[in-house]
Nucleic acid binder design. Structure first.
Lengths: 256, 256
DNA sequence: CTAATAGTGTCTGTTAGACATTATCCT
DNA sequence: AGGATAATGTCTAACAGACACTATTAG
């Protein structure tokens, strides 16, 4: 009984004669927090879903590019200049079920971001609080497990899709370096892979593979400022190279 | 005009107080046509961009899931039941630049589809014509080459993204079988890869790899109905197996 | 010295590309 | 037979995982 199957454009293009859609940009912001893969969530202060945790995001402005809206929301929530911080931000997928927001028809364009460190966060205008949540503590498959945190709207599915995207992108892009500061050691890089993938990697083999990827890493001379308290042989520092795509890819150890 | 009054929108959530967005679902429909990778385009009958070729698509209904809208548009344009035909259809990306349509603010959720054969197509309500275009004949990077066909709106970028998605997905999913009928030979499957990737593959090695992928292909007994005119040794027929993801992946020959 | 972390070397089974060879149909 | 296409077999270099070993620091 959908009467809208043939949406013929009228003669005049009065915008208000079209189905009233709202478009939001919501961002799955990832970082490594307390040694765990974590995402930034805000606690909703108003109905619906008041008190539940939701993705940071908001409405896209009338004359605003959707991509720009995502960058703006990320900046508002973290106070971080996305470009300057070398953060990763890309579109994930659009969620457009008609009943995903009980108030009105809202289409959500979801994004994934990766930040180099768990920056200080502050709640936005309509949020009661904001904090990092380890993804392991979230009820992403909506099992209803009371040990896990339930998310608002369909945000569990969005977070799940974002996390899977990041896991996959570690294999064939340089996204892992976005979890780290400008310079880092190979151990730190390996720990990013291990944390996000949730499995141990062989140190020497990781080293051989990652250094064999053309243009991924550049060794930098000198130590870190300030020199961190260290035990054992001091590590070589690297910064990311020009490569965005990884040739060859660094594949997850499979079930052989 | 349609209203959402039964949605009991509170005063604060009057849809018309929000920026008026229109949302469309546009589909990059791929097939192999005359031995070339081709996409379905419709000729625009009205301004703007009258006479130019554009992606099939249309407005999403007020109570319609965006994914459903894409499937509906695909069916309207091809007369094909997406599910029954075993066609592939998935979301590509959302294009949301504020000036991409001069009439009003339109956010386009783009999809990619793969059809098993170049089915007969017919123009929709607001299209002058519809036909398959080899992607090689389209000006996807907007070079302005007069030998190539220029596309309407930002549809060149959408087609380019869709084609690249299909090329990438051949590597790690069973999407290649969506270009073929229910049963097919290994040569036909190899020709899909060669056509989409635009490079020759070694026959024996392709065979070894593709048969080594767990659950991708199932040999079927008997010949084809009706038996096609054939020269040379008759080929074994296969149908697609249960596998959607390819383990191990079938990677494009790289520049070594 | 020992503990701890960083980095190197080596062995082995698997795999990818190249290509020669055999099989089975048609005319 | 001869042409055409399908299917199999083989060789080799590169690569992956496993893991033993060396290097450099702190205390």
């Amino acid at each position: 009984m959908t009467t809208t199957s043939e949406q013929v454009a009228p003669v005049a293009y009065d915008p208000h004669r079209y189905p009233p859609f709202a478009v939001t940009a919501d961002v799955v912001v990832c970082t490594i927090w307390n040694g765990q893969l974590a995402v930034l969530l805000v606690e909703r202060g108003a109905e619906p879903h008041a008190g539940r945790w939701a993705l940071p995001g908001g409405f896209v402005g009338v004359d605003e590019d959707v991509d720009d809206a995502a960058a703006r929301e990320l900046t508002e929530e973290t106070g971080l200049d996305v470009v300057a911080a070398g953060a990763f931000l890309e579109q994930l997928r659009t969620f457009g079920a008609p009943d995903r927001d009980p108030r009105m028809r809202v289409v959500s364009v979801a994004y994934v971001a990766v930040l180099p460190a768990p920056v200080a966060v502050h709640a936005g205008s309509d949020a009661a609080a904001a904090r990092w949540w380890p993804v392991a503590d979230l009820d992403l498959d909506e099992s209803g497990d009371p040990e896990l945190v339930a998310l608002a709207f369909d945000h569990a599915a969005i977070v799940a899709a974002g996390v899977e995207r990041v896991r996959a992108k570690l294999e064939y892009t340089a996204i892992a370096t976005s979890f780290l500061p400008a310079t880092f050691t190979l151990s730190e890089l390996r720990r990013v892979y291990e944390t996000v993938w949730g499995q141990q990697l062989d140190t020497p083999n990781f080293r051989r593979k990652v250094l064999g990827i053309d243009g991924l890493l550049v060794a930098v001379s000198g130590g870190r400022e300030p020199a961190p308290p260290t035990v054992g042989r001091p590590a070589q520092l690297y910064r990311r190279g020009d490569a965005h795509a990884l040739h060859p890819p660094l594949l997850r150890p499979g079930p052989r």
